[in-house]
Amino acid sequence: MANNSLAYYPGCSGQGTSKEYDMSTRAVCHALDVKLQDIEDWSCCGSTPAHTVDHGLSTALSARNFVQAEEQGLADVTTPCPSCLKNLKVALHRLKDKNVGPEAERILGRSLTQEHSVRSILQVIYEDIGLKKIAAKVVQPLTGLKVVPYYGCLMTRPHDLMEFDDEENPVSMDKIMEAAGATILPFPLKVECCGASMGIPRNDAVTRLTGRLLGVAASLGAEAIVVACPLCQMNLDLRQSQVNRYNKTNYKIPVFYFTQLLGLAFGIQDTHLGFDKLVVDPKPVLSKLMANKSVLPGTFDNAEVAA
């Protein structure tokens, strides 16, 4: 019998700094009946450090995970992390490249035996489930919550490779949050870089770039930022205090993974969503949302959102 599960690649940060993304992803996928099967004994894709050293090395590190998936009879891979996503997708392309391909296979020590696809959890939820079904699952709409969705640089670009949404103005997460009842503010910096891992060797890159993201979000009156990338989340959330110190600002904007807010709207218990893992305290925003709750049921028109 064909295995209709998706091969799930959690990514290393899912076991560390973005535990709450992994938790909430699993909870939301379970609620939406998206079957995830973990790739057994998966290994690191190499992330940015590997591809900045060598494309053969980076391709081999990523490709080992397809080998693992093949052994489980799985072809279609999904991951919450855009950096893993990009490395896994690039690896599939480079294995077919006449320059890098043979070298990558030598480094890997074997070749893949079948075709694979890789998509983000965001893409799977947006395309396979769709807004209509998402809206129908909402029991606790996020009415009144003003958010800006921030996609980061890697999720949708370059389009030829990522084959999802728009590379300058993506809307998938906007629409998903809208289906969950939130108010979406137009955010012009949706795909502008947060500084990525430069935060470690060059902290001013993050205080500057992430500072701009927070500044624009605040000026729009955003109560929260919604993200789909562990590194963006870490820069915006964990490093928000550094941004404030360097730029003499005082932002206290919580930064949620879209899966956390979606889970909340689905009525999934907090213990599966990991709000306590966020550094900037989300309680003021969440309790304001809960305070409105009593008047909400019945006011939410699913058909309108899905249209």
């Binding site: 591809h51 640089c153 670009r157 500084g195 990525a196 891992s197 890159a205």
Partner: peptide
């Protein structure tokens, strides 16, 4: 070395 590979230029 400082390029963060954000792909803005490529896009």
């Amino acid at each position: 070395w400082y390029c963060a590979t954000c792909e803005s230029c490529t896009v």
